[in-house]
Design a binder for these strands. Structure first.
Lengths: 156, 156
DNA sequence: CGCGATTTGTTGCGATTGCAATTGTTGCAA
DNA sequence: TTGCAACAATTGCAATCGCAACAAATCGCG
């Protein structure tokens, strides 16, 4: 019915949220992806770059450069994987913990203000709808990519 | 309450939708911004670049390069503004109309499939919530930018 | 009128990211 | 064991975009 209105609104809100986040995170010398990476990391086991790329929905090469940056900022550390010399483990440093704490406080304060206009029931409904949409769109992407990779591997 | 879950879901769905759109639009040699610009344009009056940038929520320089590209593809035409020699009017060419029609059919088909999992009542609720969020986030951005521009113009 | 402020569009520059190609490593099968 | 496919990470390259600086044109106020 009004699918297109949903879509346009969603798209516009995405742009606005990105922009707002960027303004908030700028003071911590982080962009959205870098911040999301810090949120995932901890000081113990560490993540492999490939796993980070899957979780962050970006390319492995992007994670390489993201880790380069966070390492140059002293926020994370690379260490070799004990069981596989191809892999590296990325862990938070003490400075990384501190930077993440500061940024997280600012972001969550902003998020709280934004979503405070929804009551609990609305939030519950929104979450349910977003989850269903996520499932559908993930399937759509998987289908397209399967079709294109099949086309390239089987040039019948 | 679960503000943060809303936020993460929204962010993830944004990435997925962007990615899916890009896969659909790629066959028409368009990215999301270029497609959205084509949607706004028509063959009559034409838009000024500055107005396009405000509507598309991007910088004027981005519109300059976007218009450069669409012009090189033969989809739009620049013409001088009758009343202001600083301005230019951008209008769709016949090829632009055709390309837009093809891309729009593909995108709207995809959007229809994605949002078909919501019923009318859910769609109504989603639109209402997204509109309220848009208002809040727009205000947040305006506030931050007002504060920063004031700080730079009045370095008290 | 005249001059400074504002507006429009452009360009230079840096940051970010996807994609393809490459290097080094691992695992599996002959 | 050896050879080959799969995998981890990196690099080169191009596309995209925001921001700041800029030139030309317009506006507005004395």
């Amino acid at each position: 019915m009004d699918d297109y209105q949903d879509y346009r609104l969603f798209q516009e809100l995405s742009l606005l949220l990105d922009h707002a986040d960027r303004l908030v995170l700028r003071q911590f010398r982080l962009n959205t992806l870098q911040y999301n990476a810090l949120l995932l990391l901890d000081t113990d086991e560490g993540w492999r770059l490939t796993d980070l790329s899957e979780r962050l929905l970006c390319e492995r090469s992007t994670v390489t450069r993201l880790v380069d940056y966070l390492e140059s900022e002293g926020l994370i550390a690379r260490s070799p994987d004990p069981g596989d010399r191809r892999s590296q483990r990325v862990t938070l440093t003490a400075a990384g913990v501190a930077r993440r704490r500061e940024a997280q406080a600012a972001i969550e304060e902003a998020i709280g203000r934004r979503f405070s206009i929804l009551n609990s029931e609305e939030e519950r409904q929104l979450i349910a709808m977003l989850k269903r949409l996520r499932t559908v769109v993930s399937a759509e992407i998987a289908e397209i990519e399967a079709a294109s990779s099949e086309a390239s591997s089987t040039p019948s």
